[in-house]
């Protein structure tokens, strides 16, 4: 999609111009988000904007991308931020490997870099000789929370399936691994594991077919709530009330489903605050604080009807 890239690049430069015009002596933070078409990041972005309004002692320049895999516009954004001489870059990488080199450049230019949401690849960091902390939730641990809730409800040996996110996406992989951790720990019987590309309609179609192939499914672990909604709809059409569903993200649309028991649980990683927290940490370092180290875990919480 050349079109979207161009558009994103153009947007970046416009935002940058606007940003510098206001930046008198307040520190400037460049925020690089993932796809703003994703409501999770949309909310995170709104959280960051609200945070900037509240603190008021820094300038925020935010950039999003058109879709999940469009990391090229993120690289462009980093380069533009370097040229612009921002004080800190707070980034949710679209690709855990591709982003390492441009971020290294930014660090060499003396910019404070904070990596949140998705961790950069350890091997890639080592290769490039980059020392960079990660601020973010434990996707794997979060998925395991949901998986454990399901396992506890169903008991050992229960038959379950996983509905995965985009193959290759880092958080999709982490969440699948977390579900698999629960499967191993509680000796669940994993019948099938398929992707529905984070999407409701596809999850609906894929899951209803899985249910045909395995009518004895007892539980479903969906890697996000959009897909969990599709699964719940498939269960309703099939007239199955005996199957438990867990999701991830705690989007508003699933709140009533959890309440009335159509979903067992979801996981809240407080996405709204995530970017804001990362910005706080970055500003701390800019103000002369100690550099961040290792993995600064942000809170996650299991959400159930109780």
């Amino acid at each position: 999609m050349k079109f979207s890239k161009l558009a994103a690049a153009a947007a970046t430069s416009l935002v940058l111009l606007a940003g510098t015009a206001q930046a008198a002596d307040k520190p400037v933070v460049g925020l690089i988000m993932k796809s703003l078409a994703n409501e999770f990041f949309q909310n995170m972005m709104k959280g960051a904007e609200a945070h900037q309004q509240k603190r008021g002692d820094y300038e925020l320049v935010a950039v999003g991308m058109q879709n999940e895999t469009d990391f090229e516009s993120q690289i462009n954004a980093v380069e533009n931020f370097i040229t612009q001489g921002v004080d800190a870059i707070v980034v949710a990488p679209a690709d855990s490997r591709a982003m390492v080199r441009p971020l290294k450049k930014a660090m060499e230019a003396g910019i404070v870099v904070v990596n949140f949401d998705v961790a950069l690849d350890e091997d890639a960091k080592k290769q490039q000789g980059v020392e960079l902390a990660f601020v973010g939730p434990d996707n794997r641990g979060g998925a395991k929370l949901a998986g454990d809730a399901l396992a506890k409800k169903l008991g050992e040996g229960a038959k379950v399936v996983i509905v995965e996110g985009n193959p290759g996406a880092d958080n999709a992989t982490q969440r699948r691994l977390g579900f698999e951790d629960s499967v191993a720990e509680y000796k669940l019987n994993l019948l099938d594991s398929r992707t529905a590309h984070w999407e409701t309609e596809e999850a609906n179609s894929v899951f209803s077919t899985m249910l045909t192939a395995h009518p004895d499914i007892q539980g479903v672990m969906a890697a996000n709530d959009s897909m969990a909604i599709g699964v719940v709809k498939a269960l309703e059409s099939a007239g199955r009330k005996d199957i438990q569903v867990v999701g991830f993200d705690n989007i508003p649309a699933v709140v009533p489903m959890i309440k009335d028991g159509r979903m067992l649980a979801t996981v809240d990683q407080f996405g709204t605050d995530m970017a804001a927290n990362a910005i706080d940490m970055a500003l701390g370092v800019v103000a002369g604080g100690k550099p961040l180290e290792g993995w600064v875990k942000t809170p996650i919480e299991l959400v159930t009807a109780d």
Binding site: N38, T200, E201, N204, S226, I229, G230, K233
Partner: peptide, 13 residues
């Protein structure tokens, strides 16, 4: 789409 899934998603389709 809406009748089947009971939602409207801007990233549908």
């Amino acid at each position: 789409y809406m009748a089947r899934l009971n939602i409207s998603s801007p990233i549908a389709g």
